[in-house]
Design a protein around this nucleic acid. Structure first.
Lengths: 335, 335
DNA sequence: TTGTAGGCGTTATCAA
DNA sequence: TTGATAACGCCTACAA
């Protein structure tokens, strides 16, 4: 490849008949440069097509003005019709946009990808990192924090690792959901739980367990991983094990959606025979048949808060170790 | 923020009692270092928690081992339930994964975002750039190419700018779709066209126009922007202007989906009264009611090819100026 | 207001 | 095989 030799500050300086320092000042918008000189430099920059080398700059400034959002997931998963990731991304993007920082999105589904992300982030390619959807006890956030790199997790980590996080009130939302089912007379309430290597999965199950226990009812649990397919499978398991169930709380809307379909295929009417409540309030929840009653979590806001916290940290400010946003029960027709 | 002072090569060298050069060799896996020394260096690296500074490295190597995928779209749009972008992302991600390059995803919906992306890419933060979903005559690809930065566009640009691209055979696919409608006896065939500032939008309309003209039929056109809402609106327009239509080719599955719903609301049966064909073959196309007949485009493959081309360019090889992948008519129940 | 000069942390070219 | 030493391109005291 015949990489065009790119002009440097030095070249621009020669062209404009000034020193490197002056060019640097003009390029970076310093006001202490006389107008004629400034103009001459601008001209030289334009003529030569000069573009600053960011590596050189960040080597000395110790900043890159870009922030990474790391999703330790396969691309397939991130961009499914689950709108959770997209919303987080949008939220983060909005805040960074306002701060004029570049968002760098990194997927890390595979071990190799994870290693690459580690190299990239620890190598100071970014000024800070937002993690979302962490599984298990991923050591990377803590590692980065130890290296002095600002880190915020969107969604609390399993096991407290001392990294600031933002999350939503899972238990509160689930509690309201189960109470709603109880209020409408349901007594044989099952749950389709989420993956237990994620905090959201654990918490939503905890919420369910506590709520049914408080009502003196037995628990009926099947597990999924937040996806549609897993929801359908879990629903079939529940029907097999507890054919008499009259309500289901699913830990994600996708699972709830698939479960409703499975119920219909099994000849059960929703909500007449079995009530269904989901979690997330994704866009399609309003368009399912019947429209899905669900626990809304402010995902966009979660992303925005995560980004805000990170920007504060990067600016050297202290931030709260935890920020928990409220959830809300949205009652539609399915329960 | 108490940014921990990070150890440098120098520090490791002192600790291990060798020179910087030797540490560099060990870190980069050179084989010309004696085993005991290698071991001592490894120990020092571990003890100090040394991580190479990527900015310093790329300043001298002129490489970053990362590739940008730029989507000049709002995050909202990119992550809608349209699976087109996600598939491109996945395709690119797969190839880069195999090449052990870091994927850096950048959204650039706003003008400010666009400017940021320009700074970032021209500033040599990445070794190459894949563009997808370009609107109008975006000058950035050509600009990067002039700077000697490898660029590939996924989806051809409006107006030939001399940047290598990969795309699918829009016209061929649409032609087969219209022919299918003709073969099944439809004669009053309308189209919901895509945005005319995108090559895909233009080409699919061209394909429709040529096909109906070749059959001696008049054209009936309404415009959308590939989204559901725009599809519904366009369908209403078409029904108003041409209440006798008996078939519609929509330039995207999302528009086709919404149009079918609109038709049903207007009392038309699909396909009995009006046949519908979409474009894309997104996942939900198989689950619409009725299942959607559509033109499948190999989007994942498109992303992979784009990435492959880029990697070749970055490696200094020559690549074909254009690569066009075939499309295919998938016949389901809607037409 | 402008220029000089040193240094940011690596890699790479030489000698040794 | 190892070690000086010179870039890489930029910013920024400090001096003029």
């Amino acid at each position: 490849m015949t990489t065009v030799q790119r002009p440097t500050l030095e070249a621009v300086a020669r062209r404009a008949g000034v020193s490197r320092a002056t060019v640097s000042r003009v390029v970076n918008g310093s006001t202490t440069v006389a107008e004629p000189i400034r103009e001459a430099v601008r001209l030289a920059v334009a003529e030569l097509g000069y573009v600053p080398n960011l590596a050189a700059r960040s080597l000395v400034t110790q900043r890159t003005d870009s922030i990474a959002l790391v999703l330790p997931e396969e691309a397939t998963r991130v961009f499914s019709d689950d709108q959770v990731f997209p919303s987080i991304i949008r939220g983060v993007a909005q805040e960074l946009e306002a701060a004029d920082k570049q968002l760098v999105l990194m997927l890390a589904g595979s071990p190799a990808g994870h290693a690459r992300v580690e190299r990239y982030t620890t190598g100071r390619h970014v000024d800070g990192v937002v993690f979302a959807s962490l599984h298990g006890a991923d050591p990377l956030p803590a590692k980065l924090a130890r290296l002095g790199i600002p880190v915020v997790c969107s969604g609390r980590l399993v096991g407290d690792v001392g990294v600031p996080y933002v999350d939503v009130d899972h238990v509160g939302g689930v509690t309201r959901a189960v109470r709603h089912l109880l209020d409408s007379g349901r007594r044989r309430i099952a749950t389709i739980a989420g993956p237990q290597d994620m905090f959201a999965g654990v918490e939503r199950l905890t919420g369910y367990r506590e709520a049914v226990a408080a009502a003196g009812l037995p628990e009926r649990v099947a597990f999924g991983d937040f996806t549609r397919e897993s929801g359908a499978a879990a629903m079939r398991q529940l029907l097999d094990a507890h054919p008499d169930l009259d309500a289901v709380f699913a830990a994600s809307d996708l699972m709830a959606h698939a479960a409703m379909r499975t119920l219909r295929e099994a000849g059960r009417r929703v909500p007449d025979d079995v009530a269904m409540i989901g979690f997330d309030d994704i866009e399609t929840a309003a368009y399912t048949d019947p429209p899905l009653t669900t626990v809304r979590q402010p995902i966009l806001e979660l992303g925005r808060e995560a980004a805000r916290q990170l920007l504060r940290m990067a600016a050297g400010e202290d931030v709260a170790p935890a920020l928990v946003l409220p959830t809300e029960l949205v009652v539609r027709a399915s329960a």
